[in-house]
């Protein structure tokens, strides 16, 4: 999604509505053309869904574009397209392909063992070699900038996908989830909303802080991590998976945020960039406890049958994060951009 150059900084950029993305194949082309009033309807694309790569560029961008109608929509696109029956039918078919792939590829050997799946996340490698370890210890500045661009697809809408689950919860789980969300949305202080702290980080690093600014540059492996959240959030039937995903994310972020703060210090990030990660070190140490004991605990007390969905949410998060990490580290080791097009002035070495 490209936005006008003049609007990549400051409040105007943050309020901007993206334009529809550039298509990456027949499915995303059908969605974009439907949104922009082009001739072929999405019904023609329906037949192509079953044979599409569930993790491929075309299907993931098409899904991302359909989901975006539920967030901020697109400039020049009728907001009521959100409920276009043809688009919903196509989206449903694509979601089914994606969800089948997640169920097939995620580690679901102990499909009801929520505690086991969470306990696995509660350990720290002595000398890890993930993306945040790389950025902390040896990564170059252009790796850090690319990482920031990838993550902007989510963090500029941070916590929005999880808001959809609120009416699907009750009692203790609902109270606790909303308490965490209150923090995510700034705790009553607009200047502290995490989405805004991330825009500050992008600004600080000289990157485009406009909402959706890096969607066109983001490969499917990145879009998939966000599409998973949108799908889990929008489907009441997957409320258990949304909660499992949210818990997995909150549990694993505090130590990673510490490494990112060190990476920013080492690679010349300013205070506004650091703030996003230093805030998350302490915030997520609290959020993890609330998610685990009160949100998951409360949900499973109400609906014990949802345990396998909670495990799915945790394990699908692991799967997609591992795929993204493999992509980023693989590209950087080969001195290749990890984006679909390199950031200006940062093409490898």
């Amino acid at each position: 999604m490209t936005v006008q150059q003049a609007a990549t900084r400051g409040p105007a950029a943050r309020a901007a509505v993206p334009v529809p993305p550039g298509a990456r194949g027949p499915l995303s082309r059908a969605v974009v053309e439907t949104l922009t009033g082009g001739p072929p309807g999405p019904s023609d694309a329906l037949g192509a869904v079953a044979s599409a790569d569930p993790y491929g560029e075309d299907l993931q961008l098409a899904l991302h574009t359909c989901f975006e109608l539920h967030y901020r929509g697109f400039a020049g696109v009728d907001p009521d397209r959100e409920w276009d029956p043809d688009l919903l039918r196509l989206r449903g078919a694509m979601e089914a392909v994606f969800l089948d792939a997640l169920r097939r590829d995620a580690d679901l050997r102990d499909p009801s063992d929520v505690d086991g799946a969470l306990d696995e996340l509660l350990v720290e490698p002595v000398d890890g070699h993930g993306v945040t370890h790389h950025l902390q210890d040896e990564g170059e500045r252009w790796h850090l900038l690319e990482h920031a661009a990838h993550r902007s697809v989510y963090h500029l809408k941070e916590a929005d996908p999880h808001a959809w689950v609120v009416p699907r919860l009750r009692g203790r789980a609902k109270t606790a989830l909303v308490a965490v969300q209150h923090d995510e949305f700034g705790g009553g202080r607009p200047e502290m909303i995490h989405q805004g702290l991330y825009a500050d980080l992008l600004d600080d690093l000289g990157l485009d802080a406009s909402y959706g600014g890096y969607v066109d540059a983001a490969p499917a492996v990145t879009l998939a991590t966000v599409n998973m959240m949108s799908m889990f959030g929008l489907r009441r039937s997957l409320r258990g998976a949304l909660v499992g995903h949210f818990a997995a994310a909150e549990i694993t972020t505090a130590p990673s945020a510490r490494r990112m703060a060190r990476a920013l210090e080492r690679l010349g990030g300013g205070p506004r960039a650091l703030r996003f990660y230093t805030e998350h070190i302490e915030a997520d140490a609290v959020h993890e406890q609330v998610l685990r004991y009160d949100v998951i605990g409360g949900l499973l007390a109400d609906e014990p049958d949802l345990a396998p969905d909670v495990v799915l949410g945790i394990r699908a998060t692991n799967l997609l994060e591992d795929r993204l990490a493999g992509h980023l580290l693989g590209c950087w080791r080969a001195d290749r951009t990890s984006l679909r097009r390199p950031l200006p002035g940062t093409v490898g070495r």
Partner: peptide, 11 residues
């Protein structure tokens, strides 16, 4: 170790 996994860095 099998539980050395990659994760997001904030949420």
């Amino acid at each position: 170790a099998p539980d050395d996994k990659e994760r997001p860095a904030a949420d």
